[in-house]
Design a protein around this nucleic acid. Structure first.
Lengths: 161, 161
DNA sequence: GGTGAAAAGCGACAGAG
DNA sequence: CTCTGTCGCTTTTCACC
């Protein structure tokens, strides 16, 4: 992936609805050339999709928290992500190095909802939890700086969707 | 905000490029009614923007980490988010309850780049750091479940952009 | 709030250099 | 890989309910 593709990715990361016409203007390419490149980036999985960034306060999920989990039985098979996937309050699940095994990012409507969620997580995955409540979010969802030579992923990755 | 708006937000959270025509079909409204509602949601800040979801491996940022920071001098004014905002490797900054004051989510290209970033963070904000490296990410960026009565934010919030 | 139709702009595709 | 051109669809605005 080279310069122009990185530029396209950077622009779409900042504005996922930017038109092909505008992308063409910004990159100095023709509309069809840009169209071709975007479709190729989508097919390779470099662009995995597009999402609206939503104000969680406005949709009734004002409470964000990070929940670190640790298996109660370290010998049991570790399928916590699968066991937790049905809980829609969990926005992300990261396997991490360190004392705990996963960090979950969750969004709920109230402290009581958080309490219920913690019970569900402990029951579903047989884990202990450690919760860090988010008080405010100075910034989030900042677009990455795509100004580097990142050919680490190889020429053809399988599609993500 | 009621039923149809929530449906629109849910659809756009899952596919930020969905056309107004498709949104109209899914909601049973006319194209112009949907258009009107989406613009209103954007203006109210319920929809804060649109972003392409990018594969960080493919753009040369395969290493994700969470960095918890704590001020060295607890008496100093706490403007860490401002002091760190110029570091583009920082994707998010959350103020949190607990032993540390902020959790940062960062994306870098290599362990060495993480080391350099940690030095920059410590120098820029006069903080100590505790880093949790992400090994893998079973899932991330899951769209929220908008199936609730979330009028908590009030009728007219100021625009975010 | 909602609709439906017209005008302007954009996306998708083909063919050529 | 890029350009031009065409066609059809989408977006946007308008008058009206």
């Amino acid at each position: 992936m080279e310069e122009i593709d990185r530029r396209i990715v950077a622009l779409l990361a900042r504005d996922g609805r930017m038109s092909f016409t505008d992308l063409a203007r910004e990159t100095g390419l023709s509309v069809s050339a840009v169209h071709q490149r975007v479709r190729r980036l989508e097919k390779r999985g470099v662009v995995r999709g597009y999402a609206a960034i939503v104000d969680h306060d406005a949709i009734g999920l004002p409470l964000t928290a990070f929940i670190s989990i640790k298996p109660i039985d370290p010998a049991a098979p570790d399928d916590a992500p699968d066991r937790l996937a049905h809980l829609s309050a969990i926005e992300a699940c990261h396997s991490v190095a360190g004392d705990e095994s996963y960090i979950l990012k969750v969004r709920v409507g109230s402290p009581v909802a958080l309490e219920e969620l913690l019970q569900q997580i402990r029951a579903a995955a047989n884990v202990s939890t450690r919760t860090t409540v988010v008080l405010s979010t100075p910034y989030e969802h900042r677009a990455p700086d795509v100004t580097r030579g990142g050919e680490s992923a190889g020429p053809d990755r399988p599609p993500a969707a």
